[in-house]
Amino acid sequence: MVTGDSRAEITQRLRDIARDLLERGEVDVFIGYEEGSLPLRTTPAFITRPDDVSRLTWGALCENNLATYLPKFEGRVGVVVKGCDVRALVNLIVEKQIARDQVKIVGVPCQGVIDRRKLAGAVGEGPPVRSVEETDGFIIVRGSGFEKTIPVQEMLSPACATCVHPVPVLYDLLAGDEARSRGACPREDAFAEVERFAGRNVEDRFAYFAREIERCIECYACRQACPLCYCPECFVDRQSPKWVGRWRDLSDKMVFHLGRVLHTAGRCADCGACRRACPAGIDLRLLSKQMEKDALEFFGHEPGTDLEAAPVLATYRREDPDDFIL
């Protein structure tokens, strides 16, 4: 279970590791988290000098997937990863976006990250949260005239609830004790949500996605936050052939979102970066989660867990299921 001192311990451990890597010249940059400018935020920190490692922090608000900065990274880099983050990084290595020996992977046995939207809901409308304190398993939020103590476990991101690998599957250094990570979700439960959704009738499901995607403002924060969306030119930006019309009807927005999901199918490990980045609060996980399930069921492939496994949709095996072909 999470304890407050493990948070402080991990922070200290990350600073020590970063200092060591930078001092020994093993990395040019160390990417971790530091305190953000808003009560509920941390922010990515690019540390290049050993003296700056004291900026590094760790906690349940360290939400960003820092692997998104790694495609085509020049130089040697140390990076802090949670269990989900590293699976994107494994993909990047497999897909030759970064060399394995270029990156020092600093894993953190993950205790889950807070979902800010959920927390906002728990705090309720009214005056804004002006300060936040993380203690042993609780988060205390304060604003003018109110204070609330909320258990961190109740505020976790939905992706954390279905996380099968809270301890990074690949790391060079581990900042913390594996035993202290959040318990893994049993694999058979990981897809409960998508199975429930798949049980609804097709009109319902379409209506759900229509309602969600209608809100899209085409800012492409989901794409930009995703470590796997590194194409130099995204298909939606292509003018010839043109995939997305200028009227930006629901169908145009759908093309983007479906394209995004299909393009990350068999690669996405549900870190939740897309959903967190979306300013419109669109449920961007559900379809991706279905793809993750399909990859596992059809091909026995669990994205981002094996440096030797070729990308599942870029390989062919005779035994691959083909009953969808007429």
């Binding site: 990515p44 403002i217 085409e218 800012c219 924060a221 930009q224 936050a225 980045a277 300013p279």
Partner: peptide, 12 residues
Amino acid sequence: RKCLGCAVCTYL
């Protein structure tokens, strides 16, 4: 460095 290159800031 940490900018993701999305349009949240400009569109909002």
